[in-house]
């Protein structure tokens, strides 16, 4: 077992993990953060998306041990207290989720997109999210929610 010290959503945390265990399993099974989902375990669906030191990663492709000394952000850290992040609001408003299993990953990925590219085109959003599978929505309402969030954020700034 490896002893890992890391920071998740701003909190210092530590856990013991098997050298083969993924960051996704560590988050879910060791820290009880089940917001990130396993849709494939092979880096193809994006349901497990988190950021590590600001970089968007599939946590199923990162080892738990690699989190040592890093800063991890998951969907659980998006809202501030009872105030939802604007992306979360827009997803609800636009019915951009049906079953919602892809939603945590897509929210984490889009937040990261908007931090890096505050004025994305529709094509940019579609390609950025090409690694996040959604089987329910056909993406239409997701793309609209993201585009509108970006526009609102620009207006606000």
């Amino acid at each position: 077992m490896i002893h890992v010290n890391t920071k998740v959503n701003g909190d210092d945390v530590e856990f013991l993990c098997d050298p083969r265990e993924t960051l996704l399993d560590a988050l879910r099974d060791k820290l009880g953060l089940t917001g990130a989902k396993e849709g494939c375990g092979t880096g193809d669906c994006g349901a497990c998306s988190v950021t590590m030191d600001g970089r968007l990663v599939c946590s199923c492709l990162v080892l738990g041990a690699e989190a040592e000394g890093k800063e991890i952000a998951t969907v659980e850290g998006m809202a501030e207290g009872e105030n939802l992040h604007i992306l979360q609001e827009k997803f609800i408003e636009h019915a951009a989720l049906q079953c919602g299993i892809c939603t945590p990953g897509i929210l984490v990925a889009t937040k990261n997109l908007l931090e890096k590219h505050p004025e994305p085109t529709e094509t940019q959003v579609r390609y950025w999210l090409a690694g996040n599978l959604c089987r329910c929505t056909g993406y239409d309402k997701i793309i609209r929610a993201v585009m509108e969030t970006a526009a609102d954020l620009r207006k606000a700034s």
């Binding site: 917001g35 969907v75 939802l84």
Partner: peptide, 14 residues
């Protein structure tokens, strides 16, 4: 909606 955008919703594996 809120449970599903905040990661609180409990799915099969949760």
């Amino acid at each position: 909606g809120v449970d599903k955008v905040t990661g609180k919703a409990k799915f099969g594996a949760d």
